[in-house]
Design a binder for these strands. Structure first.
Lengths: 347, 347
DNA sequence: CTGTTAGCGCCTTCAA
DNA sequence: TTGAAGGCGCTAACAG
């Protein structure tokens, strides 16, 4: 069944297509009377603008590409929804495209998106350099990377929005210090990941300033998982001189591992050990977990990214690159407790 | 910067636009030599087909709308990714649109999607009748609802794909029976939800056939949450004649509540009580939960939905409505255990 | 095998 | 205030 076009509306209301177009777009040069009549016919006929045609002629599709990594994790789910919400409020639609660059014969997500003539691309990266960014040549569009590592973006020509990992680490140290902890451990440093390097640096910097001891445990695995958290926790707890009263885990996944091992070993949390995570994944809020953690503030992250992309699209600027850092916040739940004055001798 | 069109390519390779079009579409009526030359020029110039234009003329956008409810839950995240993956393999892109029908002045997701000329719409519903479905009038497109309730779809003209909830309940009862349980409880019946009614009916039907006792606890809350699970668990455990050896929870969320309360009351799982869930949400796999549960098989659900939608699009059929039920499967983890022969007297 | 012509649905000059 | 004509980038007849 052919759908109704402005031509049909024009015929039915006895005006030209130009007039219909003007009525639909609230153009100033049209009489109210005509406009009303035309719009009424549109409503009666169930007319719907063909956005493909409009985009074609205006060379603006009001489409944003969203590239996600292949794995379904709750963090990206929340990110996507927030991005879609914000984009739609600003008059844009989201075109979804999940990772898997050039696996098999499939075209890369970017090619597809660019062919669809999206006005801009949002990319949520997990691994540090998973994709070659779309070149800003002909047909290139502005691109914003979410959660990128800061180390790279000092050299790469990329627009990025990410949580301030250094600040997060810093806040974590301050928080534990304020609770009275003087002997802490940092669990899960991965030197290969700039995200984690920054978290670690922030933590160590604050600790040094405040005079708080930190035992750093490196993560041998390529990613932060519950399992690697377990391994590191065992390693730490079994050390001869184990005396830490608080653990800062590089990610909530690691923290979950710590909690599990502590449970197995009969180490009470938070009575004998305080645990602080990073990310505020959904699991962290579960009633039998209640992990105190540093939150990434996904909604704000999403909004900032969409706003930035919008600005880039509207300005057409392609020579200046922006990096935005969103300040994290502490979500206090049940895994950290203050030390009493006897327990915490002044440093 | 204007992007390159077939016109440019035609000029640069000294042929007509038609020839370029043919080269790009692998048309049979073209010499290999010409095709190669044209394609080379395309590559050199970084040509990219403008899909807007192509869709406009072919009145097929190869776009699928995906409507999700507002809340970011991991179930929908996994669904989305699987849908996108499957759609892309079949040559379709996903246009995302999250719930919120007519809140404020915003257009409904369907209007937006239809204006974008999507070829079909996938809808993941949680609440039973959240949306008015897009009418199949002019400009209407085929629509498949995921996870819809079976009760409604016997009357409504809707294509649906959902897990077979009745079968899931049935399997749950069989499983517990086979482990030796004869005294069980069903936790979380919500008479208002057809999903839950079916699960309950399946469970009761099997239990009756097998001769297994079932104590049904209703959920007074409007949704299945951990909190409501806790409430119902307390209610059950405190009953005077409490003697059940196994609990089937209407959803994993409820099961999580049961586990938590059991923990508080010092009831060992699975030693003193076996717990079986439904949904296989991500939390269920956490190392310190390890919930045995009935899995919805999201990837298969997603694939089936996309396939069905594709068929509807390609056939143009709009008079016959299809309902697909995906058989769930049991994921055995650590919360159910077999009863020894002394514990389980033959019914 | 190749090119010419027309048109998908819409917007934007320009003239009336 | 309205209308006619041209074109966005592409494909699909129909000739040559």
């Amino acid at each position: 069944m052919r759908s109704i076009t402005i031509k049909d509306i024009a015929r039915l209301s006895g005006v030209s297509v130009t007039t219909v177009s003007r009525a639909l777009n609230n153009a100033p040069e049209i009489s109210e009377e005509t406009q009303e009549r035309v719009l009424r016919v549109c409503r009666e006929q169930g007319y719907r603008t063909n956005l493909l045609a409009r985009s074609l002629i205006s060379s603006r599709s009001h489409l944003l590409g969203l590239v996600l990594p292949e794995l379904a994790n709750p963090y990206h789910a929340s990110l996507s929804l927030n991005i879609e919400l914000c984009a739609r409020e600003l008059g844009y639609q989201i075109m979804l495209c999940c990772g898997r660059p050039e696996k098999g014969q499939m075209k890369s997500p970017f090619d597809l998106l660019l062919s669809q003539r999206v006005d801009g691309i949002l990319m949520a990266s997990t691994s540090d350099s998973a994709y070659a960014l779309p070149q800003n040549g002909p047909g290139g569009v502005p691109c914003v990377v979410l959660g990128a590592c800061a180390a790279e973006s000092t050299t790469a020509r990329t627009n990025t929005v990410s949580v301030d990992n250094f600040m997060g680490g810093y806040m974590a140290a301050e928080y534990l210090f304020r609770l009275g902890h003087r002997n802490t451990a940092y669990l899960g440093l991965r030197p290969g990941s700039s995200t984690h390097t920054l978290r670690n640096q922030g933590f160590l910097t604050a600790a040094r300033t405040l005079g708080m001891a930190v035992e750093v445990v490196e993560n041998p695995d390529p990613s932060s998982s519950i399992e690697s958290g377990c391994r590191m926790a065992r390693q730490l707890f079994r050390r001869p001189g184990f005396c830490q009263t608080a653990v800062f885990a590089a990610s909530d996944a690691v923290a979950l591992g710590v909690i599990q091992v502590a449970d197995e070993l009969g180490l009470a949390i938070p009575e004998q050990l305080s645990v602080l995570g990073f990310d505020n994944i959904e699991y962290a809020a579960l009633p039998n977990i209640r992990l105190t953690t540093i939150s990434q503030n996904t909604p704000l992250l999403a909004r900032s990214a969409v706003r930035l992309l919008m600005e880039l699209i509207e300005s057409g600027e392609d020579a200046v690159y922006t990096r935005k850092l969103v300040t994290p916040s502490i979500i206090q739940r049940a895994t950290c407790r203050p030390l009493s004055s006897e327990e915490a001798p002044p440093a």
